[in-house]
Design a protein around this nucleic acid. Structure first.
Lengths: 135, 135
DNA sequence: TCTTTTATGAGAATTATTCTCTTTTAAGAA
DNA sequence: TTCTTAAAAGAGAATAATTCTCATAAAAGA
């Protein structure tokens, strides 16, 4: 809990029970939607206004505490893993898993160091790897 | 126009004025949203029901005539470019450009031929390349 | 403890999308 | 060409996700 408070104050955010619950929820649920977070908080703790959740999530994204993930399949999801990574998307359902691969990142960096894209300055490369999870 | 008809009948789809307009719109607008398509058709030609547009877009995706693209920023967009490619996403606005790079695809294929991902069978790899477009 | 700024709550509003059901139409058969 | 029928389109209601508004509450520093 102390570390959640720290994460908020590190970013200059006021510490409120709502923000702490939301951040806890994001750490507890894998790639949650806003609705997942609302349900989690309402079941575990007290009530929370949906508007608050959306507003706080925006704030967290702005401050770099979490990231958005998008898929073809449904609404926006949030990701608490901040180290650079990619995503494995199930082609059959909604499942998403994080995929960390520094060797791959290295290869991509080298590749795009040589091969410039005309009129475009790369900031971040994320792979959407679509496929099938077995068992 | 004949080629649009052909594209529909190739996929076993009935040729209707609505489907032709929608397909035309997708070819005319870069990475349109459903709403972009509706506006385009209503300004150029006749009226069309929004439900029809959504239904037809789904059908087209199902049949492989177009693909969905997602961004962090807004709603689902559609892509008429069918050859495998990646996307350059502006970090400043909503602009998306197609990025075709067969050399890169080759490198990725080779890489993942060697390095298997445990419990996952890759079907398609798409890069989301975020950055800045300079004029 | 007080003050001020910022956050939260409640619910209305908006937006995107889907659904339902009736009417229309494309396309192959006669 | 006309007929038949399955499939598509239309209209608009319904739903879902998200945003907005504004009054109230509560952090955090003075």
């Amino acid at each position: 809990m102390i570390s959640i408070k720290n994460k908020l104050s590190e970013k200059g955010l006021k510490i409120t029970p709502q923000r702490m619950s939301i951040l806890e929820a994001i750490y507890s649920i894998s790639h949650p939607t806003a609705d997942d977070i609302i349900k989690f908080i309402r079941q575990e703790h007290s009530n929370i206004a949906t508007g608050t959740v959306y507003k706080v999530l925006d704030t967290f994204v702005q401050k770099g505490l979490i990231k958005k993930i998008t898929t073809d399949k449904d609404v926006i999801r949030y990701d608490s893993l901040l180290t650079h990574h990619h995503h494995l998307h199930s082609s059959e359902d909604v499942l998403i898993k994080d995929y960390i691969d520094e060797e791959l990142d290295e290869i991509l960096n080298e590749y795009f160091q040589k091969k410039k894209i005309n009129g475009f300055k790369i900031e971040e490369i994320t792979l959407q790897i679509k496929g099938k999870f077995n068992e």
